[in-house]
Nucleic acid binder design. Structure first.
Lengths: 152, 152
DNA sequence: TTGACAGACGCAAGCCGTTCGCAATAACCT
DNA sequence: AGGTTATTGCGAACGGCTTGCGTCTGTCAA
């Protein structure tokens, strides 16, 4: 579960963790074991995870943290712009740290998710801004379609 | 509820209705009053509607058509490629006739939906196909962001 | 025209993801 | 150490959608 980390990576992760928890405190919030575990899981996750994923992982060490606590923690973190969620069409929302922003492609057949750099939609975003004054949030939804394998 | 229609529009609508019902029959399906009413509502709707919208409208004339019938009818029509649905992030799926395909922008703040021509994402689709073999389905999801009003 | 065979129906229960109300707990500040 | 108040766990409830089941009814062949 914990990533194989060199001493410096471990240190770095610890730093980020405390930094985020500090933001919660600055905001008048409190740092609890549950919140610490949620943030830790987000730091360890390679990419996006569902609230249920987080709950399951947190419950390994803190068995009676409830899903509602996870949702409430994620909500607090989103208010602080530390976390964002993305809609993948069908299926639950996926959460990730705001600084791990990506554009997502999702296959409607095999449900595979492909990540692209977060500037992949810059041209489209510019066009939407120019033509419609619309400010695109490219990492808040997935582009649906069929992946190379499933399209045949 | 029924659109103000000239005689020819009325005739045209009737034709489309029977045409679609014919497809159901050809497929080994049956044409029931409930199905007729669902298709009629889709023909009358200006744009996309939720299953609940359809149910409410159908129930005005056929009070005990249940939501499950609406969902099952929409499922049958999607199998025949007559209907498609689109995911708008939060909120229920929206259904529309397959020949009224659009790209959708949705404002995360005011929930307003802006429709763009269905070829609006052609360049993006071409790029995705070329670089990733991904076949984009541009009308199966909404582009989320903030509309001109809400972006300020 | 009728009959019988699916297919479609209504209903109610159930699913999933998410939110909420509440009383009890425990972080934080002094 | 103590008071305040944010956060918690729990359970109930939500919205959107699906399913199982027994009944009904289009459809098509006789």
């Amino acid at each position: 579960m914990a990533p194989p980390a060199s001493a410096s990576h471990e240190h770095e992760r610890e730093h980020r963790l405390e930094e985020i928890l500090g933001l919660l405190r600055e905001d008048g919030g409190r740092v609890t074991p549950a919140r610490r575990a949620v943030v830790a899981h987000l730091l360890d996750a390679k990419d996006h995870v569902s609230a249920e994923d987080i709950a399951a992982s947190v419950q390994e060490s803190l068995p009676d943290v409830s899903v509602s606590t996870v949702y409430r923690t994620l909500e607090a973190l989103e208010r602080l712009d530390v976390v964002e969620h993305i809609h993948l069409g069908h299926g639950p929302s996926q959460y990730h740290l705001a600084d791990r922003r990506h554009v997502h492609l999702m296959c409607r057949d095999c449900a595979q998710v492909i990540e692209l750099p977060d500037d992949y939609l810059d041209r489209l975003a510019a066009r939407l801004a120019r033509q419609h004054g619309f400010v695109l949030e490219p990492s808040h939804f997935a582009l649906l379609g069929r992946c190379a394998d499933c399209a045949g």
